[in-house]
Design a protein around this nucleic acid. Structure first.
Lengths: 340, 340
DNA sequence: TTGTATGCGTTATCAG
DNA sequence: CTGATAACGCATACAA
């Protein structure tokens, strides 16, 4: 038996012996309806398993859908999960539903997803921009009244609201913290690609920290990796240098995992570490991991607040909200330079 | 200026001076179209910022939407993020897009989300059932040809495919592992509510492990918590008992974090621990954390494979796939019973 | 190569 | 209180 056609309003109406509009009225509690027909309709709806076609409804009503579309690069990175949670909490009160999809950090897939969302006439669009994506095509939507917010990274080709962490300042603070504990050779383990906004900003903060302390920038101390395993390998490479670093700065949570794993594997407890972005169990490690913590939930909440204000008619200029980071001192960042 | 009406096919057609159908043709690369009109149309589309209304399109075409809807209880739990990743990878090859939303483990919200998905005529519905949810309303859709898959937990009131971990066997193995190292007083720190399927199954495995070793079940050794902090407090309570456990079994990843955090805080390295579900940095802890690892990506892939087979016409009976767990021995589960 | 009539499932309008 | 009819934005069938 092939998939049967789904029941429509008309089917329900025929079943009961009323008009389609009457069924519609009952379901939407729109106009008046006698208790008798009401019950009959409800019974028929249950019997047939009728499910209103929201697309047909939307096409008729014309208004935007009550959905917030969110595009993230990676569904399995807890950072974006936390951001999504923050958004969800904030928009639910307004009756909006968050739907999240992945771009895999690929501009083409990001575009396909946003188009899908836009085609559905969502109420708010939130995007963690992929490297190389062009957001000029969103201009019309934004000027047409659709709130568009960039998260974690700024977009390209479109002036709209964005919410980012204080990447540069946070890294500067983290590196300065290491310097204050005597370190002068500090490795930077960053993610890829190197032109990723957050990567660039955090590297810039690292460099400004060094500069402030009159420590020359040494390119051989800056390495990159795609994932945790790569970060571990990169860490190993740094420690094998003729003049190895005495401290490491992790460019994000994944890099932090790789660094910590490699230091544990090689039983090195003398290397100081500060990581950008917190990770679970950081306080349990030995030494406990000192981090420049981001506030992903707050990033989400802030983005939601901005978007909701736009929905309420705020037509002011596009603004960039910077969510502050916070240095959490736990131990790994306060290790001294080993005597030699 | 209020939000202007979005441009439609007709608007584009008027702009160019052709019929709506012609515009439709170029956009869908459907019928033939002269290069001249083609360019004109494309120009007008860009100029007006026209975005086809996918709902109108879909309602006309009638076919299902190319979306896979996924309902999870918590967007910020990395376990579900990994499951989603597995699904995404598997369905993308078929041109399907994964969209994920949160039920917050609330039946009403789960229902609202599934209704929203169903109203959009998604191709596949995947649900991590909330406690207390009734899935009988999905019957019509499932028999109407919509693949419905339950993940991580079985659904209620609907016979359909589901994919779960080997919770009972895994727990049994984990507890038996502790017993093999001499432990007889083993605490169980589980999540809430206690009637949650995974919680019940894992507790059952714990009990069967004890029973097999002729160790009496002691209710005072079974505690529960909502979150990591709660798990830490529960752990503390267990260790304060007059006759405290010498080993702990964590009912899920969050409970594991709480246990590990509390043991670190109280500087207890003599308590053996086995956790259900792996956590990052488990191998770096001291002692490294022995776990009964789940395979969330595989759960996702398996669910996707099942659903795709249904889409291809598989009308065989509903089946339950059990994804095996794997005991990963790292150290914490092999600690001996302290001498006293 | 292009246009016209028609219908998808729903709701708004207006009449009964 | 209820129903007939038109309309939403788009695609199919057929004609030109």
């Amino acid at each position: 038996m092939a998939a049967k056609r789904r029941p429509t309003l008309a089917d329900v109406a025929r079943e009961v012996g009323v008009s389609a509009k009457t069924v519609s009225r009952v379901l939407n509690e729109d106009g008046p309806a006698s208790a008798a027909t009401r019950e009959q309709v409800l019974a028929a709806v249950a019997k047939l398993g009728f499910q209103p076609n929201l697309m047909a409804r939307n096409i008729r009503v014309g208004g935007p859908d009550t959905t917030v579309g969110l595009v993230v690069p990676d569904l399995s990175n807890p950072f974006f999960g936390a951001v999504a949670s923050g958004i969800e909490d904030a928009v639910r009160e307004r009756g909006l539903t968050l739907l999240m999809g992945s771009s895999a950090d690929d501009p083409a897939r990001e575009r396909a997803l946003t188009d899908k969302f836009l085609g559905r006439r969502i109420s708010i669009l939130m995007v963690v921009p992929s490297v190389g994506a062009d957001h000029a095509p969103l201009k019309g939507h934004r000027s047409g009244g659709l709130p568009v917010v960039f998260l974690d990274r700024p977009g390209t080709g479109l002036a709209t609201d964005s919410v980012v962490s204080s990447n540069r300042e946070g890294s500067h603070e983290g590196v300065t913290h290491l310097i204050a504990h005597g370190h002068r050779r500090i490795g930077f383990v960053g993610d890829l690609p190197t032109k990723l906004y957050t990567r660039r900003e955090r590297l810039a903060g690292y460099r400004s920290g060094l500069q402030e302390a009159d420590i020359p920038y040494d390119r051989s101390l800056v390495v990159s990796a795609h994932d945790q395993e790569g970060a571990a390998a990169a860490t190993s490479g740094l420690l094998d240098l003729a003049d190895p670093p005495t401290a490491l700065f992790a460019g994000n949570n994944i890099m932090a995992l790789g660094i910590v794993a490699e230091l544990a594997r090689s039983k090195r407890k003398d290397v100081a570490v500060v990581a950008f972005d917190d990770v679970s169990l950081a306080e349990v490690l030995e030494p406990a991991l000192t981090v420049v913590a981001q506030d992903p939930e707050e990033i989400g909440r802030s983005a939601a607040a901005t978007a909701l204000a736009r929905l309420d008619g705020d037509r002011s200029r596009a603004r960039t909200v910077t969510v502050p980071t916070r240095l959490i001192v736990r131990g790994s960042g306060e290790l001294p330079v080993p005597k030699r």
